[in-house]
Amino acid sequence: MKYLDSLKFAFYVIFHPFKGFWDLKHEKRGSMSAALTFLVLLIITYILRRQYTGFIFNENDPKELNVFIEIISVLLPFFLWATANWCITTLMDGEGSYRDIVIATAYALVPLILINLPLVPFSRIINMEEGAFYYFFASVSVLWTGALILAGASVTHQYTMTKTVFTSILSVVGMGLMIFIGLLVFSLLQQMISFVYTIYREIAFRL
């Protein structure tokens, strides 16, 4: 029942972030399985939102819906953030391990799920003029999650708020760097492969 308890503990964390994140780490109230559950739920939320949001608010071209891109667009930023944050905070006396960071960040995503999931049916019973509510709740979920991520980082690493904000900005820069290096590697690989392939073809033609 540890798993169910750790799932339920998310409700405590999102309303009492500082104490919640403390217990999450030090009292072992959270679990990796719960964290991964939240990630999967978030992916499902985003897919549902793209596919089933009411026509008035759904600006997505159904022709271009791609589940794999939806999955990547949740997982990639999440693990980029966790890795970049871990890299930065290890250098700056952060006390959280990689596991702590992943768990804390995943718990911080719960408001996104809790608000965006009901917004999907809600968007089907309101018209354009009432859309203000829809957009209000959608932005509340993002702000709430943002605040929770900051609170989580500050508690996990035992940082002051200024230091948390500072490391978070550095983490975002780090995410950019990682993407840049990734693209670089890919394009280099591509060049190399095409180079080898060209040589192969050249030889094949001449033989």
């Binding site: 026509f55 008035i56 354009m128 003029e129």
Partner: peptide, 17 residues
Amino acid sequence: KLGNHRKYYSRAFYYHR
């Protein structure tokens, strides 16, 4: 909906609701 006109759809939806 077939014509992709969200504004008019919203208006029709309002009365339908």
